[in-house]
Amino acid sequence: MKHQLSEVVEIPPFHWRETDTVERVSDWIFSRKNEDWMDLSQAQNWDVTLLGVPLSRSSISASAASEHPEAFRRMWKYFVPYHVDYDLDLSPLRIVDVGDVIQHTTDIGINHQRIEEAMTLLRKQFPQTFPITVGGDHSITAPLVKGWKRAHPGERIGILQLDTHFDLRPLTSGPSNGTVIRNLIENQAIKGSDVWNIGLHGFYNTKSLRDYAQLKGVHYIPLREARMAGMVETIQRALKQLEQEVDTIYLTVDMDVLDIAYAPGVAAATVGGMRTDELFSAIYEAAQHPLVKAMDIVCVDPRKDVAEMTVRAAVHTMMTFLSGFCIRKKQEIL
């Protein structure tokens, strides 16, 4: 186990130049720019920590999701820290980009170990912050949750998963982006009954995976059912159930939950998925819940993207979450 976050996380490969004014998100998010900074930092200076994980070798489908963290950062110049729908200024939130988890060229096991260590050390060095992780493929969620568990061994962790897939494939085919939830269940990091998966649809999951979900008590709500009940109401239902059982809710957003019309740049694009407005409504609702304590955004492949639609949707997802999180922070002060 490493002792400092800087031993497993490297400086962001791309960062924007510093400015005196905050007009764009690229002016707002502070980027680490030297090796010593994290060891000397004061955690109380930050509300949110942003971590990149450029890993995609563990993706079942060919993917360049490893290129997403950099594409994600480059997209910041097209967004401002103000949500006009809610007349909400986000600029008082203090966000720091700590960099990318250092990746081995070929060894997925080593990479997952480093990801787990990064989350553990992030919690120790920045315990008061909200961690947002930008992948990378969905396999990164398993070591991230295990890292949280190591840093908070007494906590029971629930998963709120927005996804087209169960991600419950047998571990004999992993570690991969298709085994992430099963990995956590079978390694006893979480209970199956503490998982809520919202967004399944169409012809992209086998009956055997559905059978395993039922065996382990996984809660899953197909997109059709969520639409009939209302997306916000469905998220509220999941959060209400989870808050009665767990200490921490980990939110994982697989961008392939979106329809291919909105997210062509994912490894497993599908038809019949969520619209972006449905995803953003779900995210905004989840962000306001006090037990939602960590989040990741995964499975964006910039090489497959069209007009940067999916990368833009991913940044919008983070910004929407931060909007709800800002509301939560204001309520905590009152």
Rank of each mutant, 00 (worst) to 15 (best):
A142V: 03
I102Y: 07
Q125P: 12
R123V: 00
L160K: 03
Q113G: 13
S91V: 02
A151L: 05
E116A: 09
F166L: 12
T133M: 12
R123N: 06
L121S: 01
I140D: 01
D85C: 12
D107F: 04
A118S: 10
D137Y: 06
I108E: 11
G109L: 10
I159S: 04
D163F: 05
P92H: 03
D100S: 13
I110W: 06
V96C: 13
Q113R: 11
L88R: 09
H165I: 06
Y86K: 13
P143Q: 03
G99R: 01
I102F: 12
D97S: 10
F166I: 04
D163G: 07
R114I: 09
R156H: 10
I157F: 01
N111S: 13
W148A: 00
L93Q: 07
H152R: 13
L93M: 07
T141G: 00
P153E: 02
A151P: 05
I132R: 01
Q103G: 04
H138M: 00
E155A: 08
H138N: 04
L160W: 07
T141W: 02
G99P: 04
V96P: 05
G147L: 05
V134L: 07
F130K: 08
P127E: 03
R156C: 05
I115S: 05
G109V: 02
S139F: 00
D137S: 04
Q103K: 02
V96Y: 07
K146V: 04
L160M: 11
T120C: 10
H165D: 01
G154I: 08
R150Y: 01
L144S: 10
V96W: 02
H165P: 11
D89N: 11
P127I: 10
F130A: 02
W148C: 02
H104W: 11
T105G: 09
V134F: 07
I140Y: 01
L121K: 07
I115W: 11
R156N: 10
D89E: 12
I110L: 15
D89R: 04
H104T: 09
R150Q: 13
R114M: 09
R94H: 02
V134P: 03
Q128D: 15
I102N: 12
Q103C: 09
Q161W: 15
G135S: 02
L88D: 13
D100K: 05
G154L: 09
P92L: 04
Y86T: 11
L144N: 14
T120M: 13
T105F: 15
P131Q: 04
Q125S: 15
D85Q: 15
L121C: 06
G154F: 04
K149G: 00
G147F: 09
